[in-house]
């Protein structure tokens, strides 16, 4: 039996309160009240008084790791992290964007999160589907036992069965719908480049107008910049106002990466990111 959302919320408040009270962190990244129950907001508590404003329910889907790089290096931060979010924390540590010692990770073991827009359960179809945080200092509930029913790559079956032309047509159709609001990259914990390549105009990598050329340039490049780094939280796709299934592409790249290098992003703090690490025995498939 998994810990209830209400209980996790209580535990979150207690642990966050302790951390702030003892001065172990200067802020805790968590969730707070939004305009209604279904729409909680990422929230920062800086004092004991702020802790009361925290909430946790099935709609607290945002990946808070996205905010870590926003604060000056060295800031002591407590962060509430569900399974995929904790993988993002690991990946950011691997990439030296944040130091392990500066973080207190409040791990949230959970299943049954829901997408507020569709009310669908969030599972291995659109995310990695893990239940328990991979890394944490305090666990805010009991570990969820059992394995996810789906592998995170099962959803790829349909795209993988497509021939090259069909696949291109599929992606062209999907990406043609993009309005270039950049919510996907801004919601992504791994998209911290400033400036992002697509915003540069010297050289100019891609057009600004939401048409096939620029859209393909933006997305295909972004997909590849996320190779071996995307931790499959699904946040980009949930952020997208026009519901482009970006997760399908990210999952495909992640799967290939895992097959080639035998490691998934953000699963172990001792590893180097797959594309940064060189090992003699690495697969050469990428060159074929």
């Amino acid at each position: 039996m998994a810990t209830s959302f209400k209980q996790i919320e209580e535990n979150l408040k207690t642990e966050a309160g302790k951390l702030l009270d003892a001065g172990k962190v200067s802020m805790v990244l968590a969730y707070g009240r939004g305009y209604d129950e279904k729409h909680p907001l990422p929230y920062v508590a800086r004092s004991l008084a702020d802790v009361d404003g925290m909430v946790f329910n099935e709609y607290c889907t945002a990946n808070l790791a996205r905010y870590l790089v926003r604060y000056p290096r060295g800031t002591k931060i407590g962060i509430a992290a569900k399974a995929a979010d904790s993988r993002a924390v690991i990946q950011l540590i691997q990439e030296d964007k944040v130091k392990r010692d500066d973080l207190v990770i409040l791990g949230i073991p959970v299943y049954g999160m829901k997408n507020a827009k569709t009310d669908e359960a969030i599972d291995a179809k659109t995310t990695c589907g893990l239940y328990n945080p991979v890394i944490y200092d305090v666990l805010l509930g009991e570990e969820v036992h059992g394995q996810p029913v789906l592998s995170p790559y099962e959803v790829l079956e349909k795209v993988e069965a497509m021939g090259q032309d069909e696949r291109f047509a599929f992606w062209k159709k999907e990406l043609d719908r993009c309005i270039r609001c950049y919510a996907c990259r801004k919601a992504c914990p791994m998209c911290y480049c400033d400036p992002c390549f697509i915003d540069q105009n010297k050289p100019k990598w891609g057009e600004k107008s939401p048409e096939t050329g620029g859209n393909l340039m933006y997305h295909l490049t972004r997909f590849h910049h996320l190779a071996g780094r995307c931790i499959d939280c699904g946040e980009c796709s949930r952020a997208c106002p026009v519901d482009i299934p970006l997760y399908l592409f990210h999952k495909k790249v992640a799967k290939e990466c895992e097959e080639m290098f035998g490691q998934a992003a953000g699963m172990s703090i001792d590893e180097k990111p797959a594309l940064i690490n060189f090992r003699v025995e690495d697969s050469d498939k990428i060159l074929e």
Binding site: L41, P42, Y43, V44, A62, R66, Y67, I179, R180, C181, Y182, A183, R185, K186, A187, A239, P241
Partner: peptide
């Protein structure tokens, strides 16, 4: 603005 991602979703819609 603590949670704001500074994307363009709100202005484009």
């Amino acid at each position: 603005s603590e949670a704001c991602l500074s994307c363009g979703a709100c202005t484009f819609v």
